[in-house]
């Protein structure tokens, strides 16, 4: 593990039944670094980032997040989850709670924050994602883009050091993608450590410090965006790029 890595994956292997989804994955992420992970579907990119907050359990290798190793130890898992926020493809807002309650829930119950303070925090987060006026609505009353922005605000309310994004715009209608990406760009400019699984190559070019390309459970290529898009090394990367850039 290198000196200033905040996330470190070392020889991580994982199987679903007999099927190996992650094969010797090694990845070091520095503080404030923005990583964009791409690759064909089934390449293990979602599984990899889900291992980082232990939504999936890895079977071999070592994952260390902010100095805490992820093992079966529940205390460690809890402290890692406090450090790491996650945004999902399907938003996964709590449909029975209002937007404000979605955001205040974890601060109140996990951080034992007083309700008034948590609500103030929620409004602040909603300002950041630019939808304070939706605070009292329910998720079902919002558009997809608004829901995803609430999901981002919900994660930010726990004040994480690291944000994981699992295809945050894949379930959105085209005209709503930009409003979500704009929020993510703001977040990146604010200095958040981010790992983003996405096929939004425009976003990758503006924001990423490093591109990671995965295929069949392996990291095939790791490079700066400039090199990755203009001069990729592996043929697999070239094929992938030609397919998604010239559609």
């Amino acid at each position: 593990m290198s000196e200033n890595s905040i996330i470190s994956l070392q020889n991580v292997n994982k199987w679903f039944g007999d099927f190996q989804v992650l094969k010797d994955v090694n990845l070091e992420v520095k503080k404030k670094e923005r990583i964009v992970v791409c690759g064909p579907s089934g390449s293990g990119k979602s599984t990899m980032i889900r291992c980082i907050n232990r939504l999936e359990e890895h079977q071999e290798g070592k994952i260390v997040v902010d100095g805490i190793e992820l093992t079966g130890n529940l205390k460690n898992i809890d402290s890692v989850r406090k450090e790491v926020g996650m945004v999902f493809q399907q938003f996964n807002l709590f449909p029975h709670l209002s937007v404000k309650e979605n955001i205040t829930l974890a601060p109140i119950w996990v951080k034992k924050m007083p309700k008034a303070e948590a609500e103030e925090l929620a409004m602040k987060q909603l300002e950041i994602v630019k939808i304070p006026e939706q605070a009292n609505k329910y998720p079902g009353q919002l558009s997809g883009g608004q829901q995803q922005r609430v999901a981002i605000a919900r994660s930010l309310a726990m004040n994480p050091n690291i944000m994981l994004f699992d295809e945050p715009t894949s379930a959105l209608d085209p005209e709503m993608i930009k409003e979500v990406l704009d929020v993510m760009v703001d977040l990146a400019e604010g200095g958040m450590t981010m790992i983003v699984v996405t096929h939004e190559m425009g976003f990758a070019k503006t924001v990423a410090d490093r591109m990671v390309f995965m295929d069949e459970g392996k990291i095939v290529e790791e490079a700066s965006p400039d090199k990755f898009f203009n001069n990729p090394e592996s043929d697999r990367t070239k094929l992938f790029l030609s397919q998604i850039l010239h559609q």
């Binding site: 939504l55 809890d78 790491v84 999902f88 996964n92 807002l93 974890a106 996990v110 919900r154 994660s155």
Partner: peptide
């Protein structure tokens, strides 16, 4: 209840 609800709850740190 979709699995995503469990995952979202876990990811914000709920026990």
């Amino acid at each position: 209840i979709p699995r995503g609800q469990y995952e979202a709850a876990q990811s914000v740190g709920l026990s």
